[in-house]
């Protein structure tokens, strides 16, 4: 019963904050709404007994990513933000993506009858040779056995993003040395 109440509460906060995130004018408030969404999503992970995911969600997104967003939005003068005019193509793209997301929602609702077992139930099932469970150790084992390929590919992707930042932000001179970025005049 408590879990149900918590679920509806957290979902309401997550959805409400996500709506506010796109509707609010002040970018800093948007960033804080994103924070609220992430923390409520972490709470939802917690309700599923996936404590590790909940904490990693907070550690990575709330602790680092949103801080960087705040960092950037703090530099922006929030008082004279220009209103963005929605172009014709942009509007069409928005409608199409909304329909696509809607399709996902509908398919989830249709399949909701065939419920997926929660993590602890998977763990107690003797047919599962892989260690599903709440402990961190089982996450580690899964990550390094069943999902090894996805794990490695994600690593490569992140490395590429990191290299891309270095290439874009550093200027090389003719001798191949990195030049310090010149101050704007």
């Amino acid at each position: 019963m408590v879990n149900d109440i918590l679920f509806y509460l957290l979902s309401a906060v997550a959805v409400g904050a996500a709506l506010a995130l796109v509707c609010v004018r002040n970018p800093l408030t948007s960033a804080m709404c994103l924070l609220l969404t992430i923390v409520s999503a972490a709470g939802l992970f917690g309700l599923l007994d996936a404590w590790f995911l909940a904490i990693v969600q907070i550690l990575v997104y709330a602790g680092a990513v949103v801080v960087l967003f705040l960092f950037v939005t703090m530099m922006v003068d929030t008082d004279d933000m220009p209103r963005i005019k929605v172009s014709w193509a942009g509007g069409v793209a928005a409608v199409i993506s909304f329909l696509l997301v809607g399709t996902i929602f509908v398919s989830v609702i249709i399949h909701a009858g065939q419920s997926v077992p929660a993590l602890p139930e998977l763990g107690s099932n003797p047919e599962n040779t892989l260690a599903f469970g709440q402990t961190v150790k089982s996450y580690g084992q899964l990550l390094f056995t069943k999902y090894m390929l996805a794990f490695q590919l994600t690593g490569v992707l992140l490395l590429m993003a990191m290299l891309g930042v270095i290439v874009l932000s550093k200027r090389m001179n003719a001798e191949g040395r990195v030049e310090p970025s010149a101050p704007k005049k």
């Binding site: 800093l28 804080m32 924070l35 404590w51 590790f52 904490i55 990693v56 907070i58 550690l59 709330a62 602790g63 680092a64 801080v67 705040l70 960092f71 703090m74 709440q134 402990t135 961190v136």
Partner: peptide, 25 residues
């Protein structure tokens, strides 16, 4: 006594930053 105590300390501890950042802004 949680399984991921150390991670929790690092994760929640890093949230203290919002106080200074928001306060300063």
């Amino acid at each position: 006594n949680v399984d991921i105590g150390l991670l929790l300390v690092l994760a929640i501890g890093s949230l203290g930053l919002y106080g200074s950042v928001l306060g300063g802004w």
